[in-house]
Design a binder for these strands. Structure first.
Lengths: 110, 110
DNA sequence: TAATAACATGAGCATCTGTTCATATGAACA
DNA sequence: TGTTCATATGAACAGATGCTCATGTTATTA
């Protein structure tokens, strides 16, 4: 893996490295949403949501369209869906692995 | 997506959000490596490598075995390989998409 | 055109991160 | 046992990050 690829991977993953951003993306996974929708759904301040949406925009994880005076955000494309899903699958596998592990520990040495 | 899942995803992705850590993982993708191997291959200081290896260990992305006075690191399991590969695929798709985009821009408004 | 609604943006601050420097640990070896 | 090699760890510091507060921008409405 070249240094440049490593930087790009890190840059992309950085966008997913904060709970607030992941929550926004998780919300958009269900369909396009307005900023106010997100503010209400995620219990965050409007300014915080806008700031994080900017990061997500700059990393091309979401895209926006005007609609009147609102702005409707959605996942940038199917590649983002795929990336999100593989990330979620990873933590799900990790969760199951932990459960198996603690189960084993419980059975063996208490 | 629940708040807890979002936190776990963010936590996992955080481990991949730095070029140095991604480079280490990229190196380990080719096979197990000693700390000195990594230091040499990545042109990083030994202390920096060890610090980042700790982060990767705590996030269960790598595991270590003693071997004499060395320590051999490897990717934690196949789930990590899958995660890494999907991340790399993502940036590759993004790169191709950018090339198509700039190509289009060149052709149209120049 | 003034007021308002929806959103974006800049400044500032507390916190976190990655690195380096110095030192500790632990195994092999003289 | 003392030394050396391979690695880990703690302190500290510069820079980055995420949030809030205040304000700017753009589009609707009175």
């Amino acid at each position: 893996m070249t240094e440049e690829v490593a930087e790009r991977v890190a840059d992309a993953m950085f966008a997913l490295s904060t709970p607030s951003r992941v929550q926004i993306l998780g919300c958009l996974l269900e369909g396009p949403r307005t900023v106010s929708d997100l503010v209400e759904a995620l219990n965050m301040e409007q300014s915080a949501v806008s700031h994080q949406l900017r990061v997500l925009r700059e990393h091309r994880l979401v895209s926006a369209e005007r609609e009147g005076r609102m702005r409707v955000y959605g996942l940038y494309d199917d590649d983002v869906v795929a990336l999100l899903e593989s990330a979620v699958r990873h933590v799900e596998r990790r969760t199951r692995a932990s459960q198996r592990l603690t189960g084993r520990l419980r059975r063996s040495s208490g």
